[in-house]
Design a protein around this nucleic acid. Structure first.
Length: 424
RNA sequence: GGAGAGGUGGGUGAGUGGCUUAAACCAGCAGUUUGCUAAACUGCGGUACUGGGCAACCGGUACCGGGGGUUCGAAUCCCCCCCUCUCCGCCA
């Protein structure tokens, strides 16, 4: 969430930023935050003074009792008792302001950084560059949902039988391809200095709040009611929450973690013709890269991470483009996001395969993730993450782009992992 | 699933109603001493909110797992919840 002090001291900047996102209630919510904050502070001041008085009075009573002046003690006791009632009332009041403050802050999305263009939807995103060449397919080229049947490598019907729609079963070379991609991505990340971590794939409520899935996005996550645990929609949640309530020392920075996990998304109400096959699933595999950085480095890191993910696509010989998302198309918590899209030749569509974001202090503020800087001051850090990479759409485009009359060619970089170079 | 023990600062750990401003030790930081290192000695302590001040800084309040209660006063007493550990059972 946004920092209260920033809203208070840079109100106009915040409002301008939210305008870039087309956040409609910005004036109203920001005004309420500021007003509520003033009330909160006024109340706290009165309350603190009253408590200070009660504390000294209580001590006096102790002394009076000791020196045997019980009558004076009794009268002072009565006055403290009446102060105590006022304290209780003020505490209730303060509590409502504090709750209101959180509630309001949760409503506000992150402020986009200056480079982010204004815009309402994906139409307003900026294509930064396109790389690689789109293959020319032979006349009988098939979309991936037909290819997986032809070669019997991924089975949606079987998935329906044992789980439901959106839970495919990978078979034979299809399963091996999954395993190869995961290992390839993890190995590449390690070469870039990321430390491999394997986190739990169910998380508690506090973790959901830490990275911003809660409140409001409960509907996106599978929930285990018996134990109050959420299935993770992305490894971002557990990996970033490793650093919840942590104050890092400067020499522990930067933090660079990479982890593979399955991801679970309910995707309630988002199905349609354009999400056939592997384009959208309830369960999929992803390697996530996460960095924690000092504020002054984070934008350079965003570039570095995005370039790294692009290098994966290049090694996989996939044509891709980089988009700078406009304010209206960015995720709630992000200050700046690059999307990477791969061109899937048979569908003739760009598919989003990675989203690399800088959250600045938005997550760190909720997580209470800080470090001690050179001056010995405790300061919020910046968090960043990106997919490196999500598997299903990568698989879809490999299948579609590399199909030949003889079968599907495996990109050279993957062959050491798959141990086969063609699916036929 | 059954039984028990326990949650105190960066760590270990003392503290059963006011003498706690949370002891002591370890680690840390600063200083003194010193040919250097070490040792010894001295000093400093966390977090959040907040008042005053341009600032350095000086105050207030809260925080001993979380929430409530008793009391003039709670780490300490009472109630509820959460978590961890140990043993037994079951088990990949």
């Amino acid at each position: 969430m946004l920092q209260l002090a920033v809203i208070r001291e840079n109100t106009q900047k915040v409002l301008d930023g939210l305008a870039k996102r087309n956040f409609k209630d910005r004036e109203d919510v920001v005004r309420q935050v500021i007003d509520n904050d003033q009330l909160r502070r006024d109340t706290q001041k009165i309350l603190d003074e009253l408590k200070a008085k009660s504390n000294t009075d209580a001590k006096k009573i102790g002394e009076l009792m000791k020196s045997g002046k019980s009558e004076e003690a009794t009268s002072l006791r009565a006055s403290v008792a009446s102060d105590k009632e006022k304290v209780k009332a003020l505490e209730v009041e303060l509590d409502t302001y504090e709750k209101k403050q959180l509630e309001l802050l949760y409503k506000l999305p992150n402020v986009p950084t200056e480079k982010v263009p204004a815009g309402k939807s994906s139409e307003d995103n900026i294509v930064v560059h396109e790389k690689g060449t789109v293959p020319t397919l032979h006349g009988d080229a098939l979309p991936h949902w037909d290819l997986i049947k032809k070669y019997d490598i991924i089975d949606f019907d079987l998935g329906v039988k044992i789980s439901g729609a959106g839970f495919p079963v990978y078979k034979g070379k299809g399963a091996k391809l999954q395993r190869a991609l995961i290992n390839f991505f993890l190995d590449e990340a390690e070469k870039q200095g990321y430390k491999e971590v394997q986190p739990p794939i169910v998380v508690n409520e506090a973790s959901g709040y830490g990275t911003g899935q809660l409140p409001d996005k409960e509907g996106q996550m599978y929930f285990v009611t018996e134990d109050n645990l959420y299935l993770i929609p992305t490894a971002e949640v557990p990996i970033t929450n490793l650093y919840r309530d942590v104050i890092l020392s400067e020499d522990e920075l930067p933090v660079k973690n990479a982890g593979y996990t399955p991801c679970f998304r309910r995707e309630a109400g988002s199905w349609g013709a354009h999400v056939r096959g592997l384009n959208r699933l309830h369960q999929f595999d992803k390697v996530e890269i996460v960095q924690i950085r000092k504020p002054e480095e984070s934008y350079q890191t965003l570039e570095e991470m995005t370039t790294y993910v692009e290098s994966l696509l290049t090694k996989l010989e996939l044509p891709f483009r980089r988009l700078l998302l406009c304010g209206g198309d960015m995720g709630f918590s992000s200050a700046m996001t690059y999307d990477l899209e791969v061109f899937s030749a048979a569908q003739q569509r760009w598919l989003e395969v990675s989203s690399v974001s800088n959250f600045e202090t938005y997550q760190a503020n909720r997580l209470k993730l800080r470090y001690k800087n050179k001056d010995g001051k405790t300061q919020l850090l910046h968090t960043l993450n990106g997919s490196g990479l999500a598997l299903p759409r990568i698989v879809a485009s490999i299948l579609e782009n590399n199909q030949t009359k003889d079968g599907i060619r495996i990109p050279a970089a993957l062959v050491p992992y798959t141990k086969f170079d063609i699916i036929n």
